[in-house]
Write a protein that binds this DNA or RNA. Structure first.
Lengths: 231, 231
DNA sequence: CTGATGACCAATCTAGCACTCTGGTCACGA
DNA sequence: TCGTGACCAGAGTGCTAGATTGGTCATCAG
C-alpha cells in the first residue's frame, strides 16, 4: 500500500476514533467520519469493506501502539518479558488508551452493539492477552513454576487478568487506588501464582519474546490497514 | 413471624424461584407467582413491599442455604476456614445454585433489569464475598501472609474471585474443565497470593469464623423474610 | 486510465400513538 | 384480623409512517 494511502487511512481512523470516544459506536455514521476526515464516503470503502471492520481497525491500530510500547519496554529492560511484568504493563498501557480501555472493560455506553460483534473478538482474545508461543518461551527459560506447562495457564491466566479489567466499571467510588497500584496487585498475583520464587536471567527469553510480540503487532497492523476481516 | 407464615413465604419464594429460572425476571408477573403459590396477589404484598424485594428475597434465601453449607463444612473440617478453602467452597456452592449462579455470572437473560437494580447489590457485594471481620480473624490467626492486613485484600481479593465468576459465560465451548477443576484453580491462586507457605492450625480461627458466617446467614435470612430493604 | 466522489437505494431505525399489561392499593368479605 | 382480587395509574408493547444510514456505482477530475 502506498505511503500516502496509509496517511489517508490514519486520518480516517483518527476521525473514527475521536467520534467513537465522544459519541459512542451507535451514534457515529460513516458520513460523520468522512466529513471529519475530509474525504468522500466512498473513499472509506476503498480501505475497509464494512463499518464494523473500520471500527475493528480503530482498535487494531491502538493494539499495535500498545504492543510497540510493550516491545520498547522489553528492549530497555529484558526483565519486562516475565509474565507478571508483561501483564502489569499490558494492563497499564491498555487502560491508558481510551479505546482499548473501552474494549477490555466492555464499556457498553461507548461500544454498544460493537460489543456483541464478532469483529471485536480478536481484540480481546486470549491470543492478544498471552499467546501460546509466548508462554512456551517462558516455560523453556524457567520463567514459569516448575511443572507448569503453558496449557496449564489457558484457563486461570485469562481469568485472573479479565477480573482486573472487568471489575473496573463496578468499583465503588471509595476505592481510590491509582492505576499503578492496581497493576501492582495484578503483577503480585501473577508473580506468586505462576512464577518460580527466584527468576532466572531474562535476557535470552526476552530475545525470543520480542520477536513474538513484534509478529503479533505486525498481524494487527495488517488487519488494521489491509481491510482485513479480523480473523 | 409465625411459623405458618414462614411456610407461606417459602411457598411464594419457591414459586418465584421456579418461574424466574424458567422464564427470566422480566416475564414473571406477581400474578403468576400468586397463582402458582396458591395465594392472592395482595398476600404477597403482606410479605414484601415491592416486586424487586421479593426477588431479592429469592436470592437471599439461596445465600442462606449456601452459607449454611459453608458453615456445615467448616464444622466438619476447620481447615475450611482458610481463605482458599472458603472461596473454593463458595465458588462451588454458588455455581451449583442456579439463582446464585445467575447473579454472580451476571446472567442478563435470566436477570434482565434486576441486574441494574440496587436490590441486587447486597447479594454480590464484598460483604458476602468476604467480610472485613472474617479477614480480621484470618489475620489474627496467622492465616494471611505476614504483613498482609485485611484491608490490603479489599481490592485484589474480590477482583480475582469476580474474574472466575464473570468469565464463566464467556468461556469458549472447548474449555472442558469441571466446576471442581475451576474451583481448584481459584483456590490455588488465593493460596499462593494471600496465604503463608505453611498454614497454622485452623481450629481456633474456625471457631470465630463460624460465628461470623452464622451471623451473616441470619442477616440474609432476616432480609429475606422480614420484607427487608436489603440494606 | 486511475482513483475519488457523493447521489442514490434498500434496509434498518426512530418517533409517536393507541392500546395492553402489570405492579401496587385498598375496600370488602370471610 | 387477615386475606383477597377488582381496580387504577403508569409503564410497556406493537404498529406504522417517515427519517436515517450503510453500502454501491455511475460519473467525473486529474
Amino acid at each position: 500500500m502506498p505511503t500516502e494511502q496509509i496517511g489517508r487511512a490514519d486520518r480516517i481512523l483518527d476521525a473514527a476514533k475521536d467520534l467513537l470516544l465522544r459519541w459512542g459506536y451507535r451514534r457515529v455514521t460513516i458520513d460523520d467520519i468522512a466529513k471529519r476526515a475530509g474525504v468522500g464516503k466512498g473513499t472509506i470503502y476503498l480501505h475497509w469493506r464494512t463499518r464494523e471492520q473500520l471500527f475493528f481497525a480503530v482498535g487494531a491500530r491502538e493494539a499495535v501502539a500498545m504492543l510497540e510500547a510493550v516491545v520498547t519496554a522489553m528492549r530497555a529492560d529484558p526483565g519486562e518479558i516475565a509474565l507478571h511484568r508483561y501483564m502489569r504493563r499490558f494492563f497499564l498501557e491498555a487502560m491508558r488508551r481510551p479505546v482499548l480501555r473501552a474494549i477490555f472493560t466492555r464499556d457498553a455506553e461507548t461500544l454498544d452493539k460493537f460489543l456483541s460483534s464478532p469483529a471485536r473478538k480478536p481484540l480481546e482474545g486470549a491470543k492478544l492477552l498471552a499467546s501460546r508461543e509466548y508462554l512456551g518461551v517462558l516455560a523453556r527459560h524457567g520463567l514459569l513454576r516448575a511443572g507448569l506447562r503453558p496449557e496449564d495457564l489457558d484457563y486461570p491466566l485469562p481469568t485472573i487478568v479479565f477480573g482486573f479489567f472487568a471489575i473496573e466499571p463496578m468499583l465503588p467510588a471509595e476505592v481510590s487506588l491509582s492505576l499503578e497500584e492496581k497493576a501492582d496487585h495484578l503483577a503480585d498475583t501473577l508473580r506468586r501464582t505462576f512464577e518460580p520464587e527466584r527468576l532466572p536471567d531474562c535476557e535470552p527469553a526476552a530475545e525470543r519474546g520480542i520477536e513474538i510480540f513484534e509478529g503479533l503487532s505486525r498481524d494487527f497492523s495488517n488487519a488494521a490497514y489491509g481491510g482485513g476481516d479480523g480473523s
